[in-house]
Design a binder for these strands. Sequence first.
RNA 1: GCGGUUGUGGCGAAGUGGUUAACGCACCGGAUUGUGGUUCCGGCAUUCGUGGGUUCGAGCCCCAUCAACCGCCCCA
Length: 421
Amino acid sequence: MIHLPRGTQDILPGDSEKWQYVEDVFTTICHQFNYKEIRTPIFEHTELFQRGVGDTTDIVQKEMYTFNDRSDRSLTLRPEGTASVVRSYVQNKLYGVNTQPQKLFYNGPMFRYERPQQGRMRQFVQFGIEALGSADPSIDAEVIGLAMHLYQSLGLKSLRLVINSLGDQESREAHRQALVNHFKPHEEELCSDCQQRLEKNPLRVLDCKKDKDHPAMQDAPKILSYLTDEASEYFNQLKKYLDAMGIDYVVDSNLVRGLDYYNHTAFEIMSDADGFGSISTLSGGGRYNGLVEELGGPNTPGIGFALSVERLLMALEVEGVELPVNEGLDCYVISMNDEANLKAVELVHELRKHNIQVDKDYLGKKMKAQFKTADREKATLVLIIGDEELQQNVVQVKNMTDGIQETVDHKDLVSYIKDRI
RNA sequence: GCGGUUGUGGCGAAGUGGUUAACGCACCGGAUUGUGGUUCCGGCAUUCGUGGGUUCGAGCCCCAUCAACCGCCCCA
């Protein structure tokens, strides 16, 4: 038997309804916030991610699904959404259209070659938004606000919003130097990963879990102490806006995001619900003011976030949130014999044209078994056709909730049903 | 990439070397002729993830392989 590739999943009826529901909520909220959908290809030139996501990141170094096509082009299944959206923004010159900032959203599968575990798939689905063309902290607050609103409107309670500022270029450089100076004397005591991080990206040392109890961690230089006045003011503005929106947050100066393009605002939303396992990050995002230029566009600020649908559904599950997915069928048509079945075929098609959700038996089952099926399908009404009904041009309509059965004339059937579903 | 646990019918799950692989749920059929959700009766795995090996004999032992789950790393 051939079965699905590692780290992928089939989403079957029973679950797919939940996905549809969550997707609908996301789309609706994006429209309320005036974000428009953008759809980009699922694969791109490998170079886009090398430049956009950053050559030093784990994603590019060891997690990309990269392959050569028949013309020997190097292509990569997208590991995240932002690079593609920015590429499209530049290529289609969206910086030139009237409405700025461009507020975009996307929803689709991403691919990373990782060891699967709970909440981490090789193919996973992200909802994301990107706002391009504004460097106003109020739009940072809007992006965060949209994310929080989405979770809360779905019914999640145990949420924790963590924010940080990574500062601008100048802040980061000063901080980087301070980190190197701080950790250099302790280099021998740090784990091998951190020794490498100290060279390539000292910021990441702060994120290390092995060395988190090392004394040098406790008094390590905080980025927030190295922010320029301008960057600091930007961060303060953001906090002011979040306060005004009534959004709770904690500042965590050790919050570091894994992608190279971030600066200024960085944030993550975590679940604090019990039983969530080791992976508690539901979504993350931040500002990426240099990215558009890096990808060949004009100097344009941008901010976005992405959330994992898999983890969102996990969070709903562990918090015991029941999504209002419609489960029951409106009508089930039962026929007693071949002649009645002919009538059933006609009737079912007719009712469907009137937007009534209806089904019938296709296995030639006996009446009793057809009733069982109707029951299992949670049909509200059962329509019964037998010889007598055929003769009199009526159907029996049984309400499965209260058991009451009435004889209904064909010409009255549609309105009769519509009154009861 | 590394470590741990696991893999028996549609699902859950007994079985730890010896004739026909428990049980529960689900499903299908029946309990006098056209009515469901309860009850009763009956049916439902030549086969134990896959491929090798050991043995007179393996679901149970060994090796490999694939997969899932959990953790590390990292992330959404």
